[in-house]
Design a protein around this nucleic acid. Structure first.
Lengths: 193, 193
DNA sequence: TAGCGAATGTGACATTTGTCAATCTTTTAC
DNA sequence: GTAAAAGATTGACAAATGTCACATTCGCTA
């Protein structure tokens, strides 16, 4: 099926997966589209699917005292899922919302678990994905431990500049643990240098 | 061997590992002792072993402008390792130091990789460990996103009170992304309530 | 193209946290 | 038991960030 090509190509890039390993997915894939602002998952619902993003983008956020706190962004060729909810079939603590009109390839938890069970390589794939996720998150913790707001902003600007083209600044502020006004001030200060 | 009992008991607690899976480790285990302040790994060295803590505790830190920043603590029945360095055989960016006299069960990367290769269950074990590590770290990111210093302190006090008995306050401050003076002030303020 | 709403920027001020220097307390070593 | 070292606290002040009110800019659509 044409619409799954992008995902399958991405899978092929994972060196140790055989064609057979990849094929384990095929029968479980479904294509979905989300309009801008549409929810992939709402707080309190169980996240039953993991999605590979063909095009578009998403953000994870939750409400704290009526205020939206952004925890993550997702773009093309990444997976979007509420991990905790997905793995334990527990209600999600987050909302995941499309930032742009998006197209994704979905597959369910049983499909993933089945793949894990049937293929050692797929299990390995799951391990490596989790390890990567851990490392990225650990790095983010560090950015809070030893960088101030300005440095976190500059670091993000350098490491993921395209983010600033596709995501409104006030969401990035929240992602960095800052208020939007603080980011405005920082930008002004930086521009003056 | 008597000294590996604690580790083997812990392994048995992982529901899906068979006796056979566990036994894969046995030939690769070595017991090591660290005196207080001794280094498990120094910055710039490659971390070649992962260690299960029988007794004692460790901390991870690195130097930023001459200042030690604590990123993590480890206690009995946990694993201590510099993950990035271990997996990629890259120089470690961190120091890992014994906080108390400690006893650990070590095994090497080849031993782990071998276990992964030989047993689908062990691979699964690796995946689940990584998933757990990810979830804990993600939660820590959140604590920086929506809690201020006082709230982070109170949360830690509630979730891991024993930490305050075994780790000097100024290290906990660093772990929370605060200066020790700030923690002192917070405690005073909280006591007054 | 005018008008509306969303996003961003600004200024004044409050609060939190950092910094530095000094002191007090507790633990450790001899 | 005493001196030294390590850890914790305090006060004064500075810097960073939050908060609130409002102004400006941008992008969309009627």
């Amino acid at each position: 099926m044409q619409e799954f090509e992008q995902f399958k190509n991405w899978l092929k890039g994972v060196s140790f997966l055989t064609a057979q390993d990849c094929a384990l997915f095929e029968p479980h894939l479904t294509l979905k589209r989300f309009k801008e602002k549409e929810l992939f998952i709402a707080e309190g619902k169980v996240c039953r699917e993991i999605a590979f993003i063909n095009s578009g983008s998403f953000r994870t956020y939750y409400l704290s005292e009526g205020k939206e706190i952004n925890t993550c962004f997702y773009f093309e060729n990444q997976f979007v899922v509420e991990y905790d909810s997905f793995l334990k079939a527990m209600p999600s603590r987050y909302y995941i919302q499309a930032l742009e009109d998006s197209e994704v390839v979905c597959f369910s938890l049983p499909a993933v678990q089945n793949a894990y069970k049937q293929s050692h390589n797929r299990e390995r794939f799951g391990r490596i994905m989790a390890e990567e996720a851990y490392k990225m998150t650990a790095q983010r913790v560090e950015s809070f431990l030893f960088l101030d707001g300005e440095q976190r902003y500059l670091q993000l600007l350098e490491s993921e500049p395209w983010l600033f083209d596709r995501v409104p600044l006030y969401l990035i502020a929240s992602y960095l643990g800052l208020e939007r006004e603080s980011i405005s001030r920082l930008r002004k200060k930086i521009a003056q240098k």
